[in-house]
Design a protein around this nucleic acid. Structure first.
Length: 420
RNA sequence: GGAGGGAUCGCAUAGUGGUCUAGUGCGGGCGCCUGCUAAGCGCUUGGGGGCCCAAAAGGCCCCUCACGGGUUCGAAUCCCGUUCCCUCCGCCA
């Protein structure tokens, strides 16, 4: 565990703090339980003494003595109880700040420079002209309006119009159709506002609250990803034998304040405060999670291949992984107009990290002890960046954008023509 | 938004301050009985934590009657708060 934290660039000293707190907590609990057992016995005797008291005068004296002893015990128990709770809360608070431990095959590295490109698919498209970035294409086609988005809600908000809005809807429908009909996922519709405990379960709180929008009056938070409510679908449940793996897919909006990224990626729709995403999520047995992650990545790659978008699969190193992740693959699509690889999906296994926080267990067999499930999540896919990639990759010399084959039934057109 | 009612073991229910361990029925498990099946009989029953044990098995103890507080020597039971569910009224896409 210390090694895992060091690999992530975290201070392993927290482990010793936690262990020390736990030792003190256990000591308090043991003593408290011993006194409680005694207290129960005394109370029971007093009940009997009181029952006899109207016949034997001596019994009521006896009851008085017992009452005194019980009172003293009760006070000591309350003190120990408070001590145990304080230690437990302190330990819990520390535990919640500890990130997930990387799987053994995750490369160790300080930041994105340590990531490893696992494979690439397709060739970055060559253009006989100079390809435009999506924000210029979008404005010229009359399907993307950054200014009106800003006038409604500020920077990093945007408006999609006409075939732009329809393109987004087509992608969402097609993603959901492929995942449900061909990849075995069950579609779910989820709350976009959740309680803080749900954010804690997913590993977003307590550490990353400043990236979230929140209704303080109701203590409800806008979800930054569907992963958050999906994680807590079975919070505090024990899934019966034979119910794993379970695959879910959900389309939701995602809300992120992007405070930490102020000033970065300000052009276009690469980084925005509100965007749509289709999210794949799996619950599985621990022994299956490594294969399930590979299959999850394959399910998402399937979409990119059918869209004809060149992409690369990047295995994130320890220094670049998310807090809750044990192993993450990013899928990046080449965007010729912007001249960069756009992260359109991030597929992770959280192993039992989220399951512990949200208390999601399963019973391996009838009568067996419950164990924590493993959870996996992956975008399939994030909409704005996918739209950007499609616009930039499918732009034509005449200014139009071709519609990728799989989307034509959903779009009803084969081309998005420039606005007149 | 207003007025009520409710939450007890997997399910259904009993339980208005102590009667040692939350009762009963159903369901589940194990066993007995039994040509087969059914019925019957007996035993059993979830989760969390701590201690003993090298570990496993096992044993002992504590907690858990929606959740959190309070009253009390003692709370499923009384009081307060929260959550969720139900009924009625109002409003509403």
């Amino acid at each position: 565990m210390r090694a895992g934290l060091t690999a992530r660039g975290e201070d392993p000293g927290v482990v010793d703090q936690i262990l020390a707190l736990d030792a003190r907590r256990r000591q308090a609990v043991t003593e408290r339980d011993r006194l409680r057992a005694r207290h129960k016995e005394v109370s029971r005797q007093m009940g009997q003494a009181l029952a006899r008291a109207h016949q034997e005068p001596s019994a009521s004296l006896q009851a008085e003595a017992l009452r005194e002893e019980a009172r003293a015990l009760s006070q000591r128990i309350a003190d120990l109880e408070q001590e145990a709770r304080r230690l437990e809360a302190e330990m819990e608070g520390l535990l919640l700040t500890v990130p997930n431990l990387p799987r053994p095959d995750v490369p160790v590295g300080p930041d994105a420079s340590g990531n490893r490109i696992v494979r690439t698919w397709g060739e970055p498209k060559a253009f006989p002209f100079s390809p435009l970035p999506h924000w210029e294409l979008g404005e010229r086609l009359g399907i993307l309006d950054m200014e009106r988005g800003a006038s409604l809600a500020g920077s990093r908000f945007y408006v999609l119009k006409g075939l732009g809005a329809r393109l987004q809807r087509a992608l969402i429908s097609w993603f959901l159709d492929v995942h449900t009909r061909e990849h075995g996922y069950t579609e779910v519709y989820l709350p976009y506002l959740v309680r803080s405990t749900v954010l804690v379960g997913a590993g977003v709180l307590p550490k990353f609250g400043d990236n979230l929008y929140r209704d303080a009056e109701e203590d409800l938070w806008l979800i930054p990803t569907a992963e958050v409510p999906l994680t807590s679908l079975f919070r505090d449940e024990i899934l019966p034998p034979g119910s794993l793996p379970r695959y879910y897919v959900a389309h939701t909006p995602c809300f992120r304040r992007e405070k930490a990224a102020a000033g970065r990626d300000v052009r276009g729709i690469k980084r925005v405060h509100q965007f749509e995403k289709v999210e794949c999520y799996k619950f599985c047995e621990p022994s299956a999670s490594d294969q399930e992650l590979e299959r999850l990545v394959a399910d998402v790659e399937d979409l990119l291949q059918r869209l004809g978008l060149a992409y690369r699969v990047v295995l994130l190193c320890t220094g670049d992984m998310g807090f809750q992740s044990a192993k993450t693959y990013d899928l990046e699509v080449w965007a010729p107009g912007s001249g960069e690889w756009l992260e359109v999906s991030s597929c992770s296994t959280c192993a039992d990290f989220q399951a512990r926080r949200a208390n999601i267990r399963y019973r391996p067999a009838e009568g067996a002890r419950p164990e924590y499930v493993h959870t996996l999540n992956g975008s399939g896919l994030a909409l704005p960046r996918t739209i950007a990639a499609i616009l930039e990759n499918y732009q034509q010399e005449d200014g139009a954008v071709a519609v990728p084959e799989p989307l034509r039934p959903y779009m009803g057109v084969a081309r998005i023509e420039p606005a007149q």
